[in-house]
Simulated assay, not measured.
Amino acid sequence: MALKIANKLVLYLLKDHTVGLLAPLANASNVQIVRHRRTKHWNPKFKLLRAQKVLKVDLPNFNEKVEEMSEEEIRSKMKEHGLLPPSVGGTSGAMQSVRFLEKKSKTMMAIRKIRQFEEEFDTPEFCAEATKIYIKMHEMLASKDKDNMIDVVTERAYPEVMHNIESKTIHWKYIKNIELPRVVQARCTDIISKENIFAQITVRFHTQQILAIYDRFGRLMHGSEILAKDVLEYVVFEKHLANEYGTWRVHAKIIPDWLPPKEPSAITYKQKTEPPTEEETPVVESSKDAGVSKESNSPSVA
């Protein structure tokens, strides 16, 4: 109410040309009244306490690049903020956990993609099927069944499986599972077109097996038919999902870096007999020469 009365009073004074101070503003068409707001507190009694209520905070420099800083500079910065520098083992463990989560999320997305083509796909059932394919492949390898091998291995794995088995006798036997097979990784990718999708699943096998390899002479080259060995393998299975009649087949074996290298098998070969040289050839006297020499050396008869 008081503000309205003040505005009316100002307008009245502007209309009155006799007022000397407001005379220059009388001819102004647009007059704007500026009111200054009071920013200071009305009670100056607690001015000091109000000033102490506000704390100045040193903000970090966000434009500073950590990559360009040395280890000592990083440690000093962390000490300034009261933080303990992370140990090397803790950093590597954190990185491993992050990578594990990334791989697990990609595997789950790939399995979800596989279920779009196979609605009843289940990882435990697939591991049981993969075990049958794994055993069948090794039995065909032992019997050298080249014609039916392509049903359980892919075109890429076929030459690697059949390499260097000629003139050899293979005895292989699957005994039991030390640990149940499990899926460790799954991936899906499209080739040429988005509808042409291939799926690959890596299965971890920890089994007990018997393997013995004999050469063409029947001599033992590798393994034993009596002793069973614990075998840890990572086998990749592949399937053409876009193909209605596609099947899961062995595609490759992954050998981790932490596994000890296997000793190569002994190679047998036929030893060549070289002909003797001229120096080693013995000199044999003929019968004539021997007889002449004897007659010449015999005493004469009178």
Results as ranks from 00 to 15, higher is better:
T169H: 02
K288R: 07
K79Y: 12
A266Q: 09
L83N: 14
N61I: 15
S105T: 08
L59T: 15
K270L: 05
A51R: 12
E278N: 04
Q200E: 15
F46C: 11
K272T: 05
S29L: 10
V250E: 02
L3F: 07
V183C: 01
A212P: 11
A110F: 03
G20W: 03
S298N: 06
K272Q: 04
L227D: 12
I33A: 09
P44D: 05
I226Q: 10
F126S: 00
V292E: 03
M1D: 10
Q32R: 10
I175R: 11
A94R: 09
S87Y: 08
P124C: 06
V184N: 00
V88C: 08
N61A: 15
Q96A: 03
A130V: 02
I267Q: 07
P159M: 12
L22F: 00
A6F: 09
R112I: 06
I150S: 15
D122Q: 07
K144M: 14
M162H: 10
K272A: 05
W248P: 00
M140C: 13
S29H: 09
E225L: 11
D230H: 12
E67M: 13
H240R: 10
K272I: 05
Q208I: 13
K4V: 09
F217R: 10
P299Q: 02
F205W: 11
V283K: 08
F46H: 12
A266P: 02
G20E: 04
A142H: 04
M1N: 09
V98L: 03
Y214L: 12
H163V: 09
W42H: 07
K40T: 09
I213N: 01
H41Q: 08
D257H: 10
T202R: 01
P24T: 06
K294W: 05
A26I: 00
V152A: 13
F100M: 01
L101F: 02
A51C: 13
L3A: 10
F217G: 11
W42S: 07
N63R: 14
K136L: 15
T154N: 13
N30A: 11
T202Y: 02
T202N: 06
N43W: 00
L25W: 03
E118K: 14
P260I: 12
A110H: 02
G90P: 08
E139V: 03
Y214Q: 12
E139M: 13
S287D: 08
H163P: 00
Y12W: 05
T154G: 14
A290D: 05
